[in-house]
Amino acid sequence: MECVFGLVGNGFAIVAADTSAVHSILVHKNNEDKIMLLDSHKLIAASGEPGDRVQFTEYVQKNVSLYQFRNGIPLTTAAAANFTRGELATALRKNPYSVNILMAGYDKEAGASLYYIDYIATLHKVDKGAFGYGSYFSLSTMDRHFRSDMSVEEAIELVDKCIVEIRSRLVIAPPNFVIKIVDKDGARTHAWRQSVQDVTTASV
Rank of each mutant, 00 (worst) to 15 (best):
R85D: 09
N30V: 11
C162R: 01
I101G: 01
R144I: 14
S138K: 04
L114M: 02
D33N: 13
V159A: 08
G86T: 09
S113Y: 08
E165M: 13
I101M: 07
E87N: 10
D52I: 07
P50G: 05
K161F: 06
S151E: 05
K128C: 03
A155G: 01
K42F: 07
E165G: 01
P96F: 07
L139Y: 12
M142E: 06
S140Q: 11
I163S: 04
P74V: 14
L43F: 14
V152E: 13
Y97K: 02
T57M: 10
Y116A: 09
N30G: 13
V159N: 07
K94D: 13
S40D: 15
Y115S: 00
I120Q: 04
S148K: 14
S151W: 00
A112E: 01
M150P: 01
I73M: 11
F146L: 05
N31C: 04
I156V: 02
T122S: 15
T122V: 10
F56V: 05
A78S: 15
H124P: 04
S135P: 09
G111C: 10
Q68W: 11
T77G: 10
I166Q: 03
A81Y: 07
L139P: 10
S65G: 08
T84I: 03
Y136R: 14
E32P: 12
N30Y: 07
R169P: 12
R169Y: 09
T122D: 11
I35E: 04
D118P: 11
Y116R: 09
Y67A: 13
P50M: 09
K108R: 14
M150D: 03
M150C: 11
N95P: 07
Y97F: 15
K128P: 03
L43I: 11
G86R: 06
P96T: 14
L66W: 12
N95E: 10
L75C: 13
I35Y: 00
R85W: 13
Q61H: 14
A104D: 00
D127M: 09
D107F: 10
A79N: 09
S151K: 10
L88A: 00
Y97W: 10
V64S: 00
D118H: 02
L92Q: 14
P50V: 08
G48R: 03
N71S: 04
I101Q: 09
D118R: 06
V152W: 06
Y115G: 01
M150V: 02
A80I: 04
T77W: 09
N100T: 11
A121W: 05
I166Y: 03
Y133M: 09
E87C: 12
S47Q: 01
